[in-house]
């Protein structure tokens, strides 16, 4: 619906911002994916359009160029973007070409502060992760779907991956920061497009995740078993409660009569 009110150019800009900038810059260096500045000088347009439309299929087809990209991205497969079409892919390439000519593109990357993380950052980051401090944009807290070793209790969610070593895996604040600015996995994208993480919240989250990846806190083991146990124990307790509550229930006539005869 929103596309109706946007001009075609704004539409492409917005699409690029929401779907591409978590892993790519134009002239800002490599994030998870390569810097896209002058990408058409490196690769053929037709190839690019095919790749953008379905990266997974290209990789699976054994295309050597796609395989090389996969290795460079340390095995991170570019997701197939929802709503991508041949026409849209072409428009994105036009946008990249236009932005590549500029001295500094709007998409040169997130201007994230380089200041060292403070203790306060870590505390706020932890609160944001757990949810005790709500994300300004109204998005769900990380704990809903992710866990890290230091969570404690019954742990974090398991819908998404364990983020204990996310900071190390993505090699630090630049890449992970860009990622948080516009989470692009298929599960997170629709949610966080509507409720983006505030730029002020990214640094604290990075600080917290850095600590988590460094500290090597042992994993909260058994949280899953404890959860199941609590469920089973609770259900059993309720069964006893039902039995007690309906202790005068009708359980049949015959057995009682037979007992009475003895």
């Amino acid at each position: 619906m929103a596309t109706v009110t946007l001009t075609a150019q704004q539409d492409t800009d917005e699409f690029f911002k929401q779907n591409c900038t978590s892993c790519h810059t134009i002239g800002g260096g490599r994030l998870t994916g390569p810097d896209l500045k002058n990408v058409e000088k490196r690769r053929d347009r037709a190839w690019l359009i095919r790749f953008i439309q379905d990266p997974q299929a290209m990789i699976a087809s054994g295309d050597p160029e796609a395989q090389k990209l996969l290795r460079e991205a340390r095995g991170v497969v570019m997701p197939k973007v929802v709503g991508i079409t041949k026409k849209r892919a072409a428009k994105i390439l036009d946008l990249i070409a236009a932005e590549s000519k500029l001295e500094k593109s709007r998409f040169a990357g997130l201007s994230l502060s380089d200041r060292p993380f403070t203790e306060e950052d870590r505390t706020i980051g932890r609160e944001l992760f757990l949810g005790t401090r709500r994300l300004k944009g109204g998005g769900p807290p990380c704990l809903s779907c992710h866990t890290v070793n230091g969570v404690g209790g019954l742990g974090g969610g398991e819908l998404g991956p364990d983020l204990t070593d996310a900071y190390a895996r993505l090699e630090g604040r630049k890449v992970l920061g860009a990622w948080l600015a516009s989470p692009s996995t298929e599960t997170m994208a629709p949610v966080f497009k509507k409720h983006p993480i505030d730029p002020d919240e990214i640094l604290p989250l990075l600080a917290f995740l850095e600590t988590e990846s460094k500290e090597g806190t042992p994993a909260t083991t058994g949280s899953n078993i404890n959860f199941v146990l609590l469920g089973v124990v609770g259900a059993t307790a309720l069964l006893f409660l039902f039995d007690y509550f309906w202790r005068r229930r009708f359980t049949g006539v015959r057995a009682r009569l037979v007992r009475g005869q003895r």
């Binding site: 949810g131 809903s144 019954l154 959860f227």
Partner: peptide, 30 residues
């Protein structure tokens, strides 16, 4: 949904809700 997220904003409350839901889920299954 917003109210549920607000309730879940404290891990202990989230755990209480989840354990309760699981208890009744298991009860249903039994």
């Amino acid at each position: 949904p917003g109210t549920i997220l607000a309730w879940n904003s404290s891990p202990i409350r989230l755990y209480i809700l989840e354990v309760t839901a699981l208890i009744f889920g298991i009860l249903t299954l039994i």
